[in-house]
């Protein structure tokens, strides 16, 4: 860490002491309250997903298809709520409750793309769609290939 030898006068606190002081005077995240809201909002989003699965199943879709279709619909919902500027307001309270569900994945896709529209449709929207989705796909798909490879060698 780049602390210089400063000509006096300068503050009578060492970098180490300062970091301790800064830690002490910086407010901590309100973990219990954050977790409560993450649980409530995240749970509600998933419950809504289950209601949609049930409806698709009642309409005659198989269990797997109903689940896949519900996921796609939730992505649409997350994208729309981001477009009309509601999702970030939910996120203020819900934290991970609105990040972890697939609606949060949709939010992470739309929010940068939306803002970079003024930079054009290719290098603005097109490129920025994947600011967060890119890493998710990279790590997700890579892991799946590793899993497939291990499974292939195993059998």
């Amino acid at each position: 860490m780049p602390n210089q030898n400063l000509r006096p006068p300068t503050i009578a606190v060492t970098p180490k002491d300062y970091q301790d002081l800064a830690k002490k005077l910086t407010p901590k995240p309100t973990i219990v309250r954050n977790s409560f809201w993450a649980f409530m909002v995240g749970g509600t989003i998933c419950a809504l997903g289950q209601v949609i699965i049930n409806l698709f199943a009642a309409a005659g879709l198989g269990r797997q298809e109903a689940s896949t279709a519900a996921t796609a619909l939730m992505i649409l919902l997350g994208a729309l709520l981001t477009g009309i500027g509601v999702y970030d307001e939910i996120g203020k309270y819900a934290g991970a409750g609105s990040i972890v569900p697939v609606t949060g994945f949709a939010n992470s896709i739309v929010s940068p793309a939306l803002e970079f529209k003024r930079e054009g449709y290719v290098l603005g929207v097109g490129a920025r769609l994947f600011t967060v989705a890119g890493p998710v796909l990279v790590f997700g798909i890579t892991t799946s290939i590793v899993v497939g490879m291990v499974y292939y060698l195993w059998h």
């Binding site: 995240p29 970030d88 203020k92 990040i99 939010n107 929010s111 940068p112 939306l114 803002e115």
Partner: peptide, 8 residues
């Protein structure tokens, strides 16, 4: 972060 991204 983008202003419309949810989070705290």
């Amino acid at each position: 972060l983008p202003t419309e991204q949810g989070g705290q």
